[in-house]
Write a protein that binds this DNA or RNA. Structure first.
Lengths: 251, 251
DNA sequence: CGGTTTCAATAACGTATGTTACATTGCACA
DNA sequence: TGTGCAATGTAACATACGTTATTGAAACCG
């Protein structure tokens, strides 16, 4: 919950009353899932909207011959498909990566937000639009960037998204993805992901071991990934980027 | 305008009154643009929402060194970013491909739709969600499919989107994209796109010349592109796919 | 704790696709 | 009715990345 509010507040300030509404929605109907299980499967009818309270998950699509593409990562504070229940059938699956805690948000909750809480509704639209922007950036990433740029770019994105949710500590963060996960997300083979990670390590751009990632110099990693943070739309009205994100954006 | 309504009616039936509302919005503030000009540039503040009345356009992103990725095509009946004006700055550009006619839809129009026309609002949400699904499918396409599959897949998608807007005639349609456009959209080089098109032609999957595309056997092209139309969510309540799209979906 | 599985690392080799270069066709416009 | 530029087509060659295979080190687990 805290992660969601922190993230949304990168865009609009929410009142204590609005915090309370989100808090309440996020504390009823909470579930816990093990790692590496499907939360939702392609072909199913969308039911509730899910809010990730803790843990990492991903959306993915698969071809009949087994080729698999992770199309996005879901981090704490992320909402899966605001209004997704409008569609009759899921066109992709959602799977947990780590153990995950989720809150199921009802259709009625969104109806009420739409009718009575315009600032929250706007914040949810922002979430929706940023997710669309992220998906466009992934298209760019897969279509144009080299393996090294692509991997560095993905790491920057995850880093910034985690930091918006206040899930980084100093220069490091939890990083539960395996090289196979990174391969599925970048469209590279596992072997090549391994080569690229070695290269990033050798260049001093990352320190990655035992599920912890450290980024000693984010600006340098961003340059390596040709990373421009504009698509994350982390700017709140009447403010550009705060002190913490200013040097981040410096590039 | 007709294209928009036809497309939306693949999802919900709209009343004559609702048609009239859309018609009115689409006839005030109409502009015409030449081919190959920018409609919107990355970095600008989003203003109105644009509805494509005729012609083709695309969203694209560019790296400093000139690498360019088309992240989506905008066809007649497409709306650019419902509620996009919530964001402070565009993270991509929109450029025309052919001559294009657009209607600028005001923020107030969307406010009114949200407040008073829930069925249209739902239809716009459907449009938003389908666009997100398309973007995910492009991620899959670039990350996992071979050059031939990828190209065939893109052609299938464009074909179906055009047919929803009733812009195909029999087995053929206008197709103004150059091989360079296709290259920018598929992440392939122009030379390789040319090779792949030759291959598709040789296999009898497409006939493409002088800006006209014919697809003699859509089911076969779909198989070549590992194309599953589910992500376009062309199904209306109480109906699966109509006669026209049934054989399309047959695969 | 010993066995089993997952994950990471590395090597040898193969190939799909990129690059550069140039020829040809087609079409806009003078 | 040429003339010029954009678009398409082709060939020779280069390379980034994929594939298969093997090994070692963690993590898991009964």
């Amino acid at each position: 919950m805290a992660s969601l509010i922190r993230k949304l507040e990168h865009f609009v300030r929410l009142s204590p009353a609005e915090h309370a509404i989100l808090d309440r929605a996020a504390t009823e109907r909470v579930r816990k899932l093990g790692p590496r299980v499907d939360l939702v499967r392609e072909g199913e009818k969308p039911r509730d909207v899910h809010l990730i309270l803790s843990g990492w998950a991903c959306r993915y699509k698969q071809l009949e011959d087994g080729r698999r593409q992770v199309v996005s990562f879901l981090l704490p504070g992320d909402i899966c498909d605001v209004n997704g229940f409008i569609l009759r059938e899921m066109d992709h699956s959602i799977g947990s990566i780590t153990q995950v805690t989720i809150a199921d948000l009802s259709r009625e909750f969104f109806d009420e937000v739409g009718a009575r809480h315009p600032r929250i509704a706007t914040a949810f639209w922002w979430e929706t639009l940023v997710n669309a922007a992220i998906q466009r950036e992934w298209t760019m990433n897969l279509g144009q960037r080299t393996a090294l740029e692509r991997t560095a770019h993905l790491l920057c994105e995850i880093w910034l998204r985690l930091s918006m949710a206040e899930l980084t500590r100093g220069d490091n963060c939890d990083f539960p993805l395996t090289q196979a996960d990174l391969a599925d997300a970048t469209g590279l083979s596992k072997v090549h992901v391994n080569r690229i990670l070695q290269e990033l390590r050798a260049a001093g751009l990352i320190v990655l071991k035992s599920k912890t990632l450290a980024v000693p110099d984010l600006a340098r990693l961003m340059r390596a990934g040709l990373f421009n943070p504009n698509y994350l739309h982390m700017d709140r009205e009447g403010r550009q980027l705060d002190a913490g994100s200013a040097d981040i954006a410096a590039g």
